[in-house]
Computed example of a mutant assay.
Amino acid sequence: MGFFDFLKKSAAPAAPAAPAFPLVLAADAKGTIVPMEQIPDEVFAQGILGQCCGIDPTEGKVYAPIDGEITQAPDSGHALGIQGVGDVEVLIHVGVDTVEMKGDGFSPKVKVGDKIKKGDL
C-alpha cells in the first residue's frame, strides 16, 4: 500500500439526511387555507392519502412547498409528486375532478426527475 492510496479509495455513500420534525412546508399557492375536512373531495377530506389542507387560490400558480425531486407528473398536469429530504413525500393536487380536464388549462413547468427548491414555480 502506497502512502497516497488512501486518496484513491472512494468514500462510502452518505446516508440520506433525515428530516427535522416538525417539517415546515411552504404554501404551494397564494390564497386562503381550507381545512382538510372542508375539501370538496372525500379522498382528501377523509385523509385517505395522508394529512393535508386545501388552498382556495387567488392566482393560477403553484409553487414547490419543499426542496426535492419530482417523482410523479401525469400528462394531465393536474398533480405533482415530490420526494423530499428523509423520504418525505408530498402530493400537490390541483382542483377537484381536474384529471377529467385532460390537461386543458395546465402548463407544467417541471417533469419527472427535475430537482426543485422550495418556492420554485
Rank of each mutant, 00 (worst) to 15 (best):
E89F: 13
K111C: 04
A12M: 12
E59M: 04
I66A: 04
Q46V: 04
Q72Y: 08
T98V: 05
D97E: 15
C52K: 03
A18T: 12
K9N: 12
Q51A: 11
A29E: 06
V88G: 01
L25P: 02
P57E: 08
G119Q: 02
P16E: 13
Q83R: 14
E89Y: 14
E89S: 09
G84F: 01
D56Q: 13
V34I: 15
A79D: 10
K109P: 00
D87P: 05
F44A: 13
D97W: 05
G86M: 09
H78T: 01
D5S: 14
I70K: 02
F3K: 12
D5C: 04
P40G: 04
I39D: 12
A17G: 05
V99I: 15
F106L: 08
G50H: 06
P16M: 09
L91P: 00
C53Y: 13
M101E: 03
D67F: 03
L121F: 11
K118Q: 15
P40A: 08
L25K: 03
D28W: 02
G31D: 08
A29M: 10
I55G: 04
L121Y: 07
G81P: 02
A18Y: 00
A15M: 11
P108I: 10
K8R: 14
I116N: 00
K8S: 05
D56A: 15
P35S: 11
G84W: 00
V110N: 05
A15P: 01
G103N: 02
A17V: 13
D97I: 07
T58D: 07
P35A: 09
G68P: 08
G54H: 08
A17H: 02
